[in-house]
Every structure is written in structure tokens, then in C-alpha cells.
Design a protein around this nucleic acid. Structure first.
Lengths: 261, 261
DNA sequence: ACCAATGGTTCAAATAATGAACCAACGCAA
DNA sequence: TTGCGTTGGTTCATTATTTGAACCATTGGT
């Protein structure tokens, strides 16, 4: 791995839980020498990609990223184009809708929308990575990815996040064909306890899977009726977002979803 | 300059005018060898910071920047915190309000807001860099920056953007004390013809200037009355945003603006 | 068929990255 | 106070990576 990769990996250390970190901590987390880290950070700081807080001299993401994101959205309006559909999905189902996309082999939360219908709703954290094996979105994406990518995603040691989390790669792999055949994936309490998820894959112009759209519901509220309604809505919204992104559904899926709606 | 700096400099080549570029073009623009560029780009691509378009194999900003921006705003809500004030400023003045902040020595457009009052308004491009010498925002910031930074910003060859653009560093430098004394800066047709600008500086917790807030008006619409109204509104809004950002005004300025309002 | 682009690759030579050891400063407990 | 364990940051000889001229293979236009 080159120097640039190491520098960019440092950016992944910043999360919602850890919005800033000191030099030693960063070096420890990244497994790099303190001196190396310091050089990488100051170099990124000179371009505004990270900055140092005045007080504790901690590092955090810098203001330059705002320009990059703004430019990216202007060139490829991934988020803004899909937001109306996402909001409509939350409204139509009365539940929390969220959308994620593949970035460098990982599933990144892109946006979410809440419904105002219920006081109890599933809350989301934006801009975090979703584990493939424990989320409906992850499994939906995986099912439509080529075999090697599937193996890759399920090869790392998979954390058990709840009592219901399946962590055996063989078992998870075996589930993918069914998801592919159904055209959607479904999980309950595998990521967070008492959260039910239904997700559908999203595609690009070459009909390659690039993300997922999901509806998250508190398990106690789930009924057969609600499930059917969500399924119809999420497939429709999935088709619409894929279209907005300039993508197209794989032929089998187009037929499946037409039947569902 | 290190390898990381070179890689990050490539990101600055992407603008609204050039949202994507081919390998040779990037190498030419950056003044780097094609092979070097290719390695840097593929390394950034592996982290999702840039991506290649299927068609022409051109490179553009990748989806990873969305996560970074989202995380940055969650940690330091620069943009979101100020947006209501910005919108209110546009509304109160009936003109276009915009906000910019310093990033690695350059002035970056952060956000803007339009008023619905008039059909003719000044339009802005988000996420671009503003020239210090030709904009009210730039001069407002410069006036409150330490001397060396002023020299630095006015040392590069300054482009003449309109017939009214002043490009002599000595002349521009000489104007800064007056701006500092007034607490705001004003330009007319120096950046774009027939666009009038009034700008005030924004500050951080150490009362160091970190950005500017401005109102842009079509010259034909400008009157003495409107100018007075804008001045009162923009100073008030500037004080409010500085406060929202956890900053504080330099004492002299606090007095000046109190007098204006 | 030719030319001039393009994106991408190769490999010896040149250069930049690396990391153990080192400071200075701080906080804390004995 | 002293001592210990942190912290952020720096140094410099060693080492490994970056670099770039030259090279392919394609593509599009004349």
C-alpha cells in the first residue's frame, strides 16, 4: 500500500463516535509510527482535509471536505436526486427509510428519512458503515454482487452484534440465492435488537448493484399487512431511485418487482 | 512537497466547470508525469475519493467525500448552523446572500441563499474559490488577517476579471486599513460586471478571521437606502454567525457594528 | 494507412518515506 | 518535590517507495 493510501486510511478513523483524535491515538489505531502519522496529518492539514482543534491539539476532519462533497453532488446528484423518493417512502410506510451505497467495497449510509406518524421510530446515524452480514441492506447488496466480492465481504471475522446475528460465512452465503430470487432481503434483530429491516438493491447503468434502499421498523409494530405494504413501497421506490441514478434493473428483478406491485 | 500533497492537489482540479477529466488532462494540469498521476488516482480510487466513469474512463470525485462532509458537519456544523441566518439575511435584504470560509489559505464558497423578491438576482456557484483581490468577501477577510497572510494572498499574479478589477498589490494593500476601520468592505463590478458586494468578516473563538458573509446586489438596483439597509443587516447577521460558530468579534469591531445597528 | 491523441505499464535511477530514539510539556500520585 | 506515564512533536541514517522516459495497445479522425 502506498503512502497516499495510508493517509486516506486515517480519514476513515473519524466516525460519529470519534469525531476527533489525538496524534498518539491515531497512530495507535492506524498501526503506524507516530512520526509517519504526524507527517501524513500535517500534509493533509495543509490542504484543509483535516484540521487541528485549538484546545487539545486533536485532529478532526477539515473544511475542505465540504467543497468536495458539494462538487460531487453537483456532478453526480446521488443524494439529492434520491431524497424526495426516500422521504415519500418514509411517509408512505410510516417508518424509517434509509439508503446506502457501495464505496470501495464497503456499504456507506447515504441518507435517511423519518416518518412523523409514530413517536417510536428507528433512528439512524448518517455517514457510517453498515456490516453486510447483519443488515437487510448489506445482504441485499451482497446477493447481487459477483461471487468474489461476496466471498470477500464475508471472509473477515464477522462480529456478533445481537443474539440473533448470524456470523457463519457458509450460512450467510447460502442465504444469498434466496434473496436474489425474491428480489429483496429481510432481517430481524440482527443489527439492533427489535429492529426489523426490509431492503432492496439499487443498480447502476450496467445493472451492477451499487447500493440498497431499506425500511426499518420496530419489531413490535410489524404485522403481515404492514410487511406487505412496505414490500410494495420499497420495491417501487427502489426502481425509481435506480432510474434516477441513470441505472437499470437486472431483467429478472424488473419482472419480480412488477409482480410485487 | 510530499506524495500525499500531490495526490490531494489533484482533487482541486475538479471544479464546476470541469467536473471530470481524463488521465492525460489531469497530468497536464497538475504538471505531473502521467504514470505518477495514474498511480495517485488509482490509489485514491481504491478509497472511493475519486472514481472512473464507465464511458470515457474519465476521473471524477468519488462517493467517499459524501461521508467525510457529513461527518464534518456533524462534528462542526459550520454550514447547517449558519444557513437559517443566511436565509434570513437574503430575505431581509431581498438580495443574494453568501458565505465563505478560509480553507488552507483560500476563500471557499460555503453556502448562499436567494431572495424570492426580485426576478433579477445575483446567481452564485457553490464550492468554488473566491479571489481575494476582486471580491468584497476576499477583501473583508484579508483586512482582518495578519500581515504576512495579506502579503501572501496579494503576492501571486492577480487576474483582471473585469474592467474595474484592481490588480496592483500596493493599491489593494493600502485599502485594507480602511476596511478594518469601517468593519466591512464594499466592491462594485470588480468580480463580475454590474454586481455590487458588501461583506463583513467572520471570526473564530480566538477572534481570528475565518470567513466572510456578503450580500450581492445588481448594481442598477443599488440605492443609498438599500445600501444602508444591507449594511445594518449584514453586520447583524455576521455577528450572529460568528456567535453560532463559537467565535467572538474583535473588540473594536463589536463597537463598530453596535453603532451601525 | 496514417497520425495524433488517448489510457495504461515498465523498471532503473532518484527521491522521499520510515521509525527508533529523542525532547519538552503536561497531569497525576506518592 | 520527585518520579512515572502520558502527550505532541522532531531528528536523521536507513530503507523502500516514488518517479518518469520510453514503451504498448486502442481509439478517432483525415
Amino acid at each position: 500500500m502506498g503512502t497516499v493510501g495510508k493517509a486516506l486510511d486515517l480519514l476513515d478513523l473519524f466516525t460519529h463516535q470519534r469525531p476527533s483524535a489525538g496524534l498518539s491515538e491515531i497512530a495507535r489505531l492506524a498501526g503506524l509510527n507516530k512520526a509517519t502519522c504526524h507527517r501524513l496529518l500535517t500534509e493533509m492539514e495543509s490542504r484543509g482535509l483535516v484540521e487541528q482543534t485549538g484546545a487539545a491539539r486533536e485532529y478532526r476532519l477539515g473544511p475542505a471536505v465540504l467543497r468536495l462533497a458539494s462538487l460531487r453532488e453537483a456532478a453526480v446528484p446521488t443524494r439529492e436526486a434520491a431524497m424526495p423518493v426516500l422521504r415519500a417512502l418514509a411517509e408512505a410506510t410510516g417508518e424509517t427509510a434509509h439508503m446506502s451505497h457501495l464505496v470501495a467495497g464497503r456499504l456507506q449510509t447515504l441518507a435517511f428519512a423519518y416518518s412523523a406518524r409514530h413517536g417510536m421510530k428507528v433512528m439512524m446515524e448518517d455517514a457510517d458503515f453498515l456490516p453486510f452480514h447483519a443488515t437487510a441492506s448489506g445482504m441485499a447488496v451482497l446477493a447481487f454482487l459477483p461471487g468474489p466480492a461476496q466471498q470477500d465481504a464475508l471472509s473477515a471475522p464477522l462480529p456478533r452484534l445481537t443474539a440473533a446475528t448470524e456470523t457463519a460465512p457458509e450460512v450467510l452465503s447460502a442465504r444469498l440465492p434466496a434473496i436474489r430470487a425474491n428480489g429483496y432481503s429481510e432481517t430481524a434483530s440482527t443489527f439492533e435488537t427489535d429492529v426489523h429491516g426490509i431492503a432492496v438493491p439499487l443498480f447502476d447503468a450496467r445493472a451492477a448493484c451499487v447500493g440498497a434502499l431499506a425500511v426499518a421498523t420496530p419489531v413490535p409494530r410489524m404485522t403481515v399487512d404492514l410487511r406487505a405494504r412496505i414490500l410494495a413501497e420499497v420495491t417501487g421506490a427502489g426502481a425509481r431511485i435506480t432510474l434516477l441514478w441513470g441505472g437499470r434493473l437486472p431483467p429478472e428483478l424488473a419482472n419480480l418487482w412488477r409482480a410485487a406491485a
